[in-house]
Design a binder for these strands. Structure first.
Lengths: 213, 213
DNA sequence: ACCTGAACACCGTTCAAGT
DNA sequence: ACCTGAACACCGTTCAAGT
């Protein structure tokens, strides 16, 4: 079958030259392998040489796709914030967008951290300098935080939460779930996952009283 | 002046043999140099070789005093929990051991983290595996947590706080100040120290309502 | 006992060279 | 464009050797 000439196609489409090198999308493969390693063995076990080896690629192939190791970690963090945002939205929307949904979001947050502790550490561990550089990462992080802010504003408008400044309220709530998550995954409070969830529910219950309208 | 013979002195006091080797108490010096480096440049910049060099000592001299790098970091963490406990107690005792004193403890906690961010990260960053090994570290950490538990129990007995299980209440409070501290020092919420303190005060205010008797 | 240098097995990163 | 190996400047740790 002869494909018609299409104005959107480049004049001389680059052929893929498959098999010439090891990968079609090495960048994607590198990110996924890094995620796998981190999930399995933790960040401190992640080495560029190891990632390359797992993919049957030279130690330095990575530098064609990431400027350095920290750029790879930033990509990992970005991916994490994206997943977190989706899970928070899912909890909010699937539970009626009310007080119960807000509680479900808190539980979902802590569950995410407990399910992906190493990934969570990369997101928050200061491996990554937020801020100035990497606006994409900053945007993903802001997106996850935004899910929380939006939910709080909705609760305020429904008359369920006091009308303090939403940003301050959101930071307060975020600090609580983040604190529980980090203490749990860093092994600081000797707690089973069930106990961590019980603590989360207790916290939300007490906070509900504290911030009720 | 001739010092009298004292029964508490060892029979044949070891002479110091100063100048023979570089240090009288290299172990102490190593810990202090590690603390200095961490405070100045962060944990990731701490190298055993660098610590040795700063002290004019071979790269491997450290192994006479610490079994490995993680043992040095555990000593750093232990020192940190000791200081934190003392500062929490100071805040509690100097402010009347009541509701205001409890608020002062919360502020003191966050201030400690902001003043010594790298040190705080070593204490909580999972560089150190708490638990099984190093009972001294576990004891120091428990001591700092105990200051919080004791204060809460006192408030319960004074009828100022609901009589929930003290351990659960303490974990809840701890998670909040820890969460604020970590988000602040990891640069996650773009916040000045003053704003962090304002958030801390807001949190304590809301929590007071939430846990009031 | 306490300290030393040499040596080992690792890192991340750079760079000239290949296709 | 994309990948390669050699090389560089770092690590933590071990160990036989010195005093």
């Amino acid at each position: 079958m002869i494909r018609p000439v299409n104005a959107e196609m480049p004049v001389r489409p680059r052929r893929k030259r498959r098999g010439r090198y090891h990968h079609g999308d090495l960048g994607r493969a590198l990110l996924q392998e890094a995620l796998r390693t981190i999930q399995a063995d933790g960040v401190e076990s992640l080495t560029l040489r190891g990632v390359g080896k797992s993919l049957g690629v030279s130690r330095t192939a990575l530098y064609r796709h990431f400027s350095d190791k920290s750029a790879l970690l930033r990509a990992v963090a970005r991916e994490g914030f994206r997943t977190l945002r989706l899970e928070l939205l899912e909890a909010w929307q699937a539970n009626g967008r009310g007080r119960e949904a807000f509680e479900a979001m808190g539980v979902a947050y802590v569950r995410f951290a407990l399910a992906h502790p190493s990934h969570y550490r990369v997101m928050f561990g200061g491996f990554v300098e937020m801020g100035s550089a990497d606006p994409e990462l900053a945007a993903e992080a802001a997106g996850a935080f935004g899910a929380l802010v939006d939910a709080l504003v909705a609760l305020q408008q429904a008359g369920l939460v006091r009308r303090d400044e939403p940003l301050l309220l959101a930071r307060f709530i975020w600090a609580i779930v983040h604190g529980i998550a980090r203490l749990a995954i860093d092994g600081q409070m000797r707690c089973s996952p069930d106990e961590s969830e019980a603590l989360t529910r207790f916290a939300i219950e007490r906070v509900r009283t504290g911030i009720a309208a």
